[in-house]
Nucleic acid binder design. Sequence first.
DNA 1: CACATACGATACGGATCCGTTCCGTATCGT
DNA 2: ACGATACGGAACGGATCCGTATCGTATGTG
Lengths: 202, 202
Amino acid sequence: MSDMTSTADAPRSPGRPRSIRADEAIIEATLDLLAEGSTIEALSIEAIAARAGVGKATIYRRWAGKDALLLDALRRLKGVLPQPEGHSVRDDLVLLVGAIGQNVDPRAAKIMPCLVPEVNRSPDHFRLYQNIIAPRRQLMREVLRRGISEGFIRPDIDLEVTMALLTGPMLIQRVLQWNPELDERTLPGQVVDAVLAGIQAH
Amino acid sequence: MSDMTSTADAPRSPGRPRSIRADEAIIEATLDLLAEGSTIEALSIEAIAARAGVGKATIYRRWAGKDALLLDALRRLKGVLPQPEGHSVRDDLVLLVGAIGQNVDPRAAKIMPCLVPEVNRSPDHFRLYQNIIAPRRQLMREVLRRGISEGFIRPDIDLEVTMALLTGPMLIQRVLQWNPELDERTLPGQVVDAVLAGIQAH
DNA sequence: CACATACGATACGGATCCGTTCCGTATCGT
DNA sequence: ACGATACGGAACGGATCCGTATCGTATGTG
């Protein structure tokens, strides 16, 4: 973003440069500690430094405080978007629903529940959360629109409500273990099929 | 539970009895602080005591620590079950969905998101959470069964999946503000109608 | 080489909270 | 009245963490 190496703008580096290894070690330590069950505010700079094998000063040289570090660490966790195949609308929906709360980084699943209170408290976290899920919502919206244009889905449905319908059950099960009798693995298919079919007789 | 006054078991009270006002002031202070945005572990016994106008010793005389106090306070918050009217299955479902995350005590809505991490971390909190929602799930299950017996709902649906379908969207919207474009007030009706109707063409 | 900066480590003063203990006072039963 | 217990308040030692400063050392540029 900010450091475009435009023109002959010399990077201007008197003295020893920052260690990239330290950078990554700090971020990794933060995510590790969160994934191991530490709450956001139980997470201390001292613990992160110790875990990363780094002096506290090395952290404060890079970030203003715990919040800034945390936001950076979470951004690093964003992951890649799922890729709908584009053949079957139903299968694409199952794929997207199954990807809810999943990530290339397995720590994400453990960390997500810890962030729920923060999303409610901090506008920064709320924005970050919305930035992460907005493209995934858009992906699902496009699949639904495709289904409509193919005549597979009724054109009069409310897209936003439908997305909530597809997303909600999976999310509460992954984040809250809402109903111990449900199986996370089969749930995406069940949800999609139920939403498509409806439950009313005739 | 434990203090059944069976037999002529005199309550045996030498000395000044515990103050019921202190009891309630402590619980109220705990819930107030949580509702005002304090996280579970940012919540300190000292803050609770100060807020309640009570000495710390008065708290430690009653509870072993923060966890025990917290579980007691949350139990107090349980609230009353919604009452389906029993006429229209559709309207009863709308009522139950609308009651998700609602409570006679308005503080409950603010407190709920704070508990998500705890439910994942502590088996006690998980059990408490399940104990609170189990009767509400049962209520919804009975309404769905009634709809099936009335021929209004298809008999081949998966009840647990259907309940997740009805509950999930409302819960993520109340707890996470999942989609700012959705309106919490109209959502229950929209969700119920969408689940009943399905979105597939023909 | 000299200089500038970053490094890990350690120590610091200040703050907060823990759980306990002790006040002087208040409120019970006998 | 008397003993027993609870009360609010204050103080305690210990623990943890904050954010800063200061070591001696390492690693870059000119």
